[in-house]
Design a protein around this nucleic acid. Structure first.
Lengths: 212, 212
DNA sequence: TTGGAGTATATGATATATCAATTAGCGTCA
DNA sequence: TGACGCTAATTGATATATCATATACTCCAA
């Protein structure tokens, strides 16, 4: 029950169903999901523990609005961890898996050309996590997933950026090529570049700090 | 209430009060702490969400035994994040703060010479977090703290290693010196070395995997 | 008009009862 | 002796009631 509530609320957050900084009211959510307050409360507390939700001083629980300040804190972390995952993954890809990644990259190219934002987000995530999974470090994968849950909701703005929309698959191609030639250093570098470029596209969409 | 339970249980874990893989029974803990089951359950769920506790298939909640496998997954993460924190911190230390870090390093030296394991663990943590805090990236600090909570219980074995006990403060001195001469690259490198050396001392103390 | 006091209402936190699932213990049989 | 079935006890999960805290609203005085 509380697992179901957890996943429903978390997925709703990723889809932007909850307005940042507006309280999530336990009794309302319980009524909406047709269960008692207890598993709702537990699901919310769990999301708070994961730092996906924030408790305000008046005890209300909100989806935190992503700020440039916080985003700038998270980016070097992502670059470090996801860059490292790409490096670790390179030698672990089989030829079959590389072929699959190549096919996936081509699909990303298609949705990117069409400026299909939703399709891009889905396949972008699939591309990245295919690489990170191959690093074969479950703890690292969990951490990276945590980070994506935190920044995920702002990704929807990627195609608002003129530069990004025309270069949305460039780094993926570079990462793929580095993996093909087993160049771990380059794979890590292009992964970090991908994160950096996306960050530049996204930052203007956010308030500077929480007061803004 | 549930905050108090949370901190009591979490601190108890760091002190080794709970036997790895033995169930934490909600009703028993509630009786011990003199409160009802609800905040205990919430505290446990919170610690599960933070991956400090594990839910087994039979629904019981346990302190996971640290294994070499998991530890080896966590170490490169720590090296990447804590190394980066050290690099970021270097230019941010004031002269006063460097003097204080130098004094702290001298205190670590004293407890290390005496092979005072408990004293060392306290001051070692203080040394590390003084540096990481100075990186001025709250998200990074939270993540590093998460990692320390996960590996913290096995640190108690550091002085079991003959090599480590005689070199326990070497890297701290190197890190301090790098900070003094504002050499970010070296600070990061010595921080990673510190983590690597400690890992080598600790790994033999753990079972290989969960079944062992 | 603004600020303060008092009351009602809403909301989070906790206690308790009950339900759901798992384990322990016992007896029987091959 | 080991496996199976049954029942009782234990333990986690959920519902509901109640308590504690915060907010909204109204009224009155300066």
């Amino acid at each position: 029950m509380s697992d179901q509530a957890y996943h429903a609320i978390r997925d709703g957050m990723q889809e932007g169903l909850f307005i940042p900084m507006e309280p999530l009211v336990i009794r309302t959510l319980a009524a909406n999901y047709g269960i008692s307050a207890t598993p709702i409360r537990e699901a919310l507390q769990r999301l708070v523990a994961e730092r996906l939700l924030t408790v305000l001083p008046n005890r209300s629980i909100v989806v935190p609005r992503m700020t440039q300040r916080r985003f700038r804190e998270l980016m070097p972390i992502r670059a470090a961890l996801e860059g490292m995952a790409a490096e670790l993954a390179v030698d672990k890809f089989t030829e079959d898996e590389i072929a699959q990644l190549s096919e996936l990259t081509a699909r990303v190219e298609e949705v990117a050309k069409r400026h299909d934002s939703a399709g891009y987000l889905t396949l972008n995530r699939e591309f990245h996590f295919t690489v990170y999974r191959r690093a074969n470090n479950p703890e690292l994968l969990l951490l990276i997933n945590d980070l994506w849950l935190k920044v995920g909701p702002v990704f929807t703005g990627l195609f608002d950026d003129e530069h990004f929309k025309h270069h949305a698959n460039d780094e993926h191609r570079n990462i793929l090529a580095a993996i093909e030639r087993r160049d771990a250093e380059a794979a890590g570098r292009f992964m970090r570049q991908d994160i950096d470029i996306a960050a530049k596209a996204l930052l203007p969409l956010m308030p500077l700090t929480e007061g803004a």
